[in-house]
Design a protein around this nucleic acid. Structure first.
Length: 419
RNA sequence: GUGGAUGUAGCUCAGUUGGUUAGAGCGCCAGGUUGUGGCCCUGGAGGCCGGGGGUUCAAGUCCCCUCAUUCACCCCA
């Protein structure tokens, strides 16, 4: 295989069967969005680089190492969108949505690009759906977004175990950070290599270390540093979702790698995904709008990976499986075409032979691709009728052309119920 | 970016200590009464054995490089 014609690393071709599942998820997302009043927003696939560098934070991996950036012919620095939240924040500011009645509920479904090393559940181009709720600083906003996530996952048969934490605010986070840094300095030599680096760059991340949990476990807990407001906020969110029967567990080591998070953060994991076990993640990001040229606005939201949701849901979502009708041509002539168009007029998915196959071969093809076959042509045709046969149950009938669509439709519907 | 595993037909895989024309199952195509599927039978198409280099009389089998896939680290959806 000539390497020139291979798809770029970490990208994927989605063939009809999987594409049908993706389509199913897309519908699920949009129906849940509608249920809670979230309107779809679409933003460009690329943005000026500053949107992500300033919005997401230039200390994060996705802007530091994983950017697909280029300079266009006009000398403008552009970057393929690595995540949705910063882009939506930019659009919120640019289009003056701050003037809309609050809260403003938005959702998106779009391709994202990150130049990472691919593995299970991690691609250089992947799709994400996300929900963004702007304008409300209330715990109820955090809670609503969690309920949206639950309903979405329930739609594919998953009962989520949600992990939550609060990263505090500008009042209490500095104190915690200082305590953490002091703690890690004391244990400096015992930290793994990565963590020595992280301790300086972003100490909260060390909590997340998988090498050696013992040091992280002994670290100070942010819960002991929350200010009164942050504690009250966190407690209220927990209480609200618990009230709706959603089980959430506080995970002190949950931090998340994007700079814009503030107070609430949460994740949902699924064991079927291997190491990239995050199905969806999000949190509160009050003030993100200020990083992209607007006034600070409170906001919460989350994003999930389509490919990961697909993996977690597995066979629970249907692939390509539309039961179809197939019209076989008996003898020479083009009666099959006429009948096929007739069925399509009645909105019945129908196929006909394009391979100049024998009747026998057409039957074989029909049994593979369809649930009902219609035989057009020959003697019955002379009498104004066509033969219909159910390929699953073998039943057969001869009907006049005029009544064909109704018969085919009923047979297809009945076949559906049996599965 | 780091480490491990794997690349043979469309798919899943066999290919013995290097040794003639590289195999199977499934799938695909055709035929088994020029008007009827599924089962069965027969035949057929389809492989630069990922790519490049090397060792050898001889490489799908051994060595090096490279590309890709995959698992993990890192990070995250």
């Amino acid at each position: 295989m000539d390497e020139r014609w291979q798809r770029p690393r970490g990208t994927q071709d989605i063939l009809p069967d999987d594409a049908a599942r993706v389509e199913y998820l897309r519908r699920l997302v949009s129906s849940v969005a509608q249920l809670y009043g979230y309107g779809r927003i679409e933003t460009p696939v690329f943005e000026q680089t500053a949107v992500f560098v300033d919005g997401v934070g230039d200390g994060t991996d996705i802007v530091q190492h994983e950017r697909y950036s280029f300079v266009d012919a006009g000398g403008v620095a552009l970057t393929l969108r690595p995540e949705g939240t910063a882009a939506v924040a930019r659009a919120y500011v640019e289009n003056g949505l701050s003037a809309w009645p609050k809260p403003v509920r938005l959702y998106y479904w779009a391709p994202m690009f990150r130049r990472e090393r691919p593995q299970k559940g991690r691609y250089r181009q992947h799709q994400q759906y996300g929900f963004e709720l702007y304008g409300s600083p209330e715990p109820s906003a955090d809670a609503e977004v969690l309920l949206v996530a639950r309903r979405l996952l329930a739609g594919v048969g998953l009962v989520p175990q949600v992990l939550v934490n609060s990263l505090g605010c500008e009042v209490c986070r500095p104190g915690y950070r200082a305590a953490l840094v002091a703690y890690f300095e004391k244990h400096g030599p015992d930290l793994c290599e990565d963590c020595q680096r992280r301790a300086a760059a972003n100490p909260l991340r060390v909590l997340d270390c998988k090498q050696d949990r013992t040091i992280a476990q002994g670290a100070p807990d942010i819960a002991d540093f929350w200010c009164v407001a942050c504690r009250a906020h966190q407690d209220a969110v927990m209480a609200l979702v618990a009230d709706q029967g959603l089980s959430v567990v506080r995970e002190p080591s949950l931090v998340r790698g994007l700079d814009y998070y503030y107070r609430t953060v949460f994740e949902v994991h699924d064991s079927s995904l291997g190491a990239q076990s995050t199905v969806l993640g999000g949190g509160r990001y009050d003030g993100l709008t200020a990083r992209v040229g607007g006034a600070p606005v409170p906001a919460v939201g989350f994003a999930g990976g389509v490919e990961r949701l697909l993996m977690a849901a597995g066979r629970r979502i249907p692939g390509e499986g539309v039961p179809r009708a197939y019209v076989a041509q008996v003898g020479p002539g083009r009666e099959a075409w006429r009948v096929a168009e007739l069925l399509r007029d009645a909105a019945i998915p129908t196929e006909v032979d394009l391979m100049a196959r024998s009747l026998k071969a057409q039957m074989k093809e029909a049994s593979r691709r369809a649930a009902v076959v219609v035989l057009a042509g020959g003697q019955e045709w002379e009498a104004g009728r066509v033969a219909v046969r159910g390929l699953r149950d073998g039943r057969e009938s001869e009907v006049p052309l005029g009544g064909l669509a109704d018969v085919v439709r009923t047979w297809l519907d009945e076949g559906q119920e049996g599965e």
